[in-house]
């Protein structure tokens, strides 16, 4: 199993003084899988992701990406696309200019720039300054930047942040296609179970810096069903189902023409 691990951490730990941000995490993300990294705000997801990308140094433990220890030569990052925490870009540069900087620094082709803009639905905004984009479009720009150089591994921290429900579905489909058709490995963090459950093959739950549970999605879903059945009333379960139905209806009404329905 370790042999085909794209991401492998052993005893990954990060302390800030007395604060234990990440505590002894062992992650194994296999080639071509979508791994959901689930946890509440402040659980340690972003700190872990920053360590995976070499942005911060672990207090203890090791990280291997594609079998290589991180640090030193950064060429392995050519195979990685990422989005860390909030979407950021150079506000004075346009969408196309922001992506062009990324293209130049990753050695991607000019065609990939157009492709990324089209793929993330940013064509109408290509000449708009990034500082004038809506939050959702800033998130799309960050996702386009992550995908621009056709990486083999995507590390995405809360990729649905700021996106409307239709945008969330679009990104979900995009990631599913990348993983299914191109064999791209995806590690995505979220604090929303529904978002992860739609997409992930395996889910790891992090709490207070520790990986408290890790299982295939179906196994975790079965556990969740048992928990919900034993813990919540029928009325509460009906309420939850109604919310999900309303969301689907909203998506149908606001999505592309072909999916629109008559009330």
């Amino acid at each position: 199993m370790a042999g085909d691990a794209v991401i492998a951490t052993v005893g990954l730990t990060k302390r800030y003084g007395a604060i234990q941000a990440v505590d002894d995490i062992a992650l194994q993300v296999r080639r071509g899988e979508i791994y959901g990294f689930l946890g509440r705000n402040g659980a340690g997801k972003t700190t872990t992701i920053r360590m995976l990308l070499g942005l911060i140094r672990p207090t203890a433990g090791t990280v291997r990406i594609f079998g290589h220890p991180i640090g030193g030569d950064q060429r392995w990052l050519r195979r990685v696309g990422f989005l860390v925490e909030t979407a950021t870009a150079y506000p004075n540069l346009t969408v196309a200019e922001n992506l062009d900087l990324q293209r130049r620094l990753t050695g991607a082709t000019r065609a990939s720039l157009t492709d990324a803009i089209e793929r993330l639905g940013l064509a109408p905004y290509a000449d708009r300054r990034a500082g004038r984009l809506s939050l959702g479009n800033q998130q799309r720009l960050s996702l386009a930047r992550a995908l621009l150089h056709s990486p083999e591994l995507l590390i995405l921290d809360e990729p649905a942040n700021g996106l409307d429900p239709a945008g969330i579905v679009e990104v979900r489909e995009l990631l599913r296609t990348l993983a299914g058709d191109r064999g791209v490995t995806v590690l995505m963090s979220s604090h929303i179970l529904a978002e992860v459950a739609h997409l992930a093959d395996r889910i790891g739950i992090i709490d207070a810096g520790r990986l408290v549970e890790e299982a295939p999605r179906d196994v975790l879903a079965a556990r969740a069903r048992d928990y919900v059945r034993d813990t919540f009333t029928d009325a509460e379960r009906q309420e939850a189902l109604l919310t999900a139905d309303l969301e689907r209806y909203f998506l149908a009404q606001t999505g592309p023409e072909r999916t629109r329905t008559t009330p």
Binding site: R50, L55, Q74, W76, R78, V84, T88, A89, Y90, L105
Partner: peptide, 15 residues
């Protein structure tokens, strides 16, 4: 200030 340092420092270019 723009929060772009994290994007820059995780690129395949020596920092």
């Amino acid at each position: 200030a723009d929060g772009t340092a994290k994007n820059l420092l995780a690129l395949p270019v020596g920092r």
